[in-house]
Design a binder for these strands. Structure first.
Length: 464
RNA sequence: GGCGGCAUAGCCAAGUGGUAAGGCAGAGGACUGCAAAUCCUUUAUCCCCAGUUCAAAUCUGGGUGCCGCCUCCA
């Protein structure tokens, strides 16, 4: 498995710290609102990565946090006249609704910042003891000048960063790049007791602390959006390596942005679509396929047209599966022909190609291409007169590969007896060349959401 | 100013030295009572210029255009 590591700017062979295990931490949402499709990208792509590593036999421990206390949380809670806790509880629930719709599996741990305040205080104390942090008034700051590797992830020297810094030098800070570990309470803000007085943790410290707590001092993989490289991940490294004096993460994975009209989609620009918005018009599985149709590090544009393309592509996948299931239930049991043997020999090549794509830095676009090649092979096999056994093998391969990408989750289900009877009635009408009746039944069923297709192998149905 | 990314058909998109995957849309054809599904065929001076090489979408240099990070952001 090769992964592009932001730290080294190269693809590297993945070697876990502990044999057979993957410990990964992915930065999760700040739960002050519904998440948008830009947020959804890392959730989806790293969910796929996790599925794939499990498929490869690794024991994966996946942690994704919820940031449930920060400036935005406080501001939104004030606007809505509810507590920060109430706001967080609500949007954590909404997170899971949307994540479920996208078939994003639950992490092994979803730690919340507010439930780790004591751990954070202890961590900050260690930083102070090591001379890497200082108290200024009721705040505590990380002393970036005291950490020699500061800037190594983003490839920036502290000097360069300072030249470009747009940030105003806080009165209490020694250096413009220093960042808050602990913020003293301001009027009306929620606060926790600490050695520095009542206050709340800075944003960056939670990830260092929770990654350390759930995954250890050195983790295998840390992932998130490219916009977190600086300052968030840079600061996490400073904190974690400052305290532990060990590498924090072995591989840093960062996904590219979702753009609207070629501009980054972000809450601050206001040009975003939430997953909740999209779900009103599209099945969220379409969004999932859309996300996987390009490589995760490339930027992707978002538009309705592109979702429609993804929708059509997804339907092709479902058609292939439906057709296969139909063939299985109707194929004869018979001895395999030479053609069948050839087909069955070829089948594993698709899995091999798929794996090759995935192991090249999670190239889901290429992997999807392999699935579509498999689909053509399957569709072509329909009239080869293969045995049920052969079709079953095709189905298993298709399900395996699409399952690794988290696609084709919906099951077809069964038809009501009433509708079953109508289909039989139509078949009878067709046999009698009573096209008027046959077409009427087909139209009526379409209104019920059932589409009938008369294939060379027989009549088939699917839901709209 | 510093750091980084991208440019492949109408749209989307893989492909890091050997002569352009795949999806969507369109066109033509096959199958079909019709429709659908499916299959076959079809659409690319790989942004420009120069260089390296037997060979370049791929490497090097120089352009051009677009985007991102350096402030909260996935």
């Amino acid at each position: 498995m090769k992964l592009y590591n932001t730290m080294t700017k190269r693809k590297e062979e993945f070697i876990p710290l502990h044999e057979g295990e993957v410990r990964m931490y992915s930065c999760g949402p700040t739960v002050y609102d519904y998440f948008h499709i830009g947020n959804a990208r890392p959730f989806i792509i790293f969910d796929v990565f996790r599925r794939y590593m499990e498929y490869k036999g690794y024991k994966v421990t996946f942690v994704q946090n919820f940031t449930d206390i920060d400036d935005k949380m406080i501001q939104r809670a004030n606007e809505e006249e509810i507590t920060v806790k109430e706001l967080a509880d609500r949007f954590i629930e909404e997170y899971f609704k949307d994540a479920d719709g996208l078939y994003i599996r639950r992490a092994d741990y979803h730690p919340k910042a507010t439930e780790h305040i004591d751990d954070m205080i202890a961590f900050i104390q260690k930083l102070i003891e090591k001379g890497l942090a200082y108290q200024a008034g009721n705040d505590v700051y990380f002393d970036t000048n005291a950490f020699k590797d500061y800037g190594k992830l983003s490839g920036q020297s502290l000097e360069d960063l300072e030249i470009g810094a747009r940030i105003e030098i806080g009165k209490a800070k020694r250096n413009p790049m220093d960042f808050a570990l602990w913020k003293g309470q301001k009027p009306g803000e929620p606060a926790w007791d600490s050695p520095w007085g009542p206050g709340r943790p800075g944003w960056h410290i939670e990830c260092s602390v929770m990654a350390n707590k759930y995954l250890g001092e050195t983790i295998d993989i840390h992932s998130g959006g490219q916009d977190l490289i600086f300052p968030h991940h840079e600061n996490e490294i400073a904190q974690s390596e400052g305290v532990n004096e060990k590498p924090f993460a072995r591989y840093w994975l960062h996904n590219g942005y979702i753009n609207i009209d070629n501009r980054k989609m972000s809450k601050s620009l206001g040009n975003f679509f939430t997953i909740r918005d999209i779900s009103a018009e599209f099945d969220l599985e379409v969004v999932r396929l859309f996300m996987l149709s390009s490589h995760y590090r490339n930027p992707i544009n978002f538009s309705r047209e592109l979702l429609e393309q993804a929708e059509a592509a997804l339907e092709r996948l479902y058609n292939a599966r439906d057709n296969l299931e139909y063939l299985i239930s109707n194929a004869e049991d018979k001895a395999p022909s030479d053609e069948e043997r050839e087909f069955l020999e070829k089948l594993p090549e698709f899995t091999a190609d798929f794996e090759r794509a995935m192991e090249d830095d999670i190239n889901t676009a290429d992997a999807l291409g392999v699935i579509f090649e498999l689909v053509r092979e399957i569709n072509t096999s329909a009239d080869k007169g293969l045995s049920a056994n052969a079709h079953q093998a095709s189905l298993e391969t298709l399900n395996k590969l699409t399952g690794l990408l988290g696609l084709l989750n919906k099951q077809k289900g069964k038809l009501d007896e009433e509708i079953e009877a109508l289909i039989q009635e139509r078949e009878k009408a067709r046999a009698e060349k009573n096209w008027a009746l046959a077409d009427k039944i087909r139209d009526d069923l379409k209104k019920e959401g059932i589409i009938l297709e008369d294939t060379p192998q027989g009549v088939r149905w699917k839901r709209v």
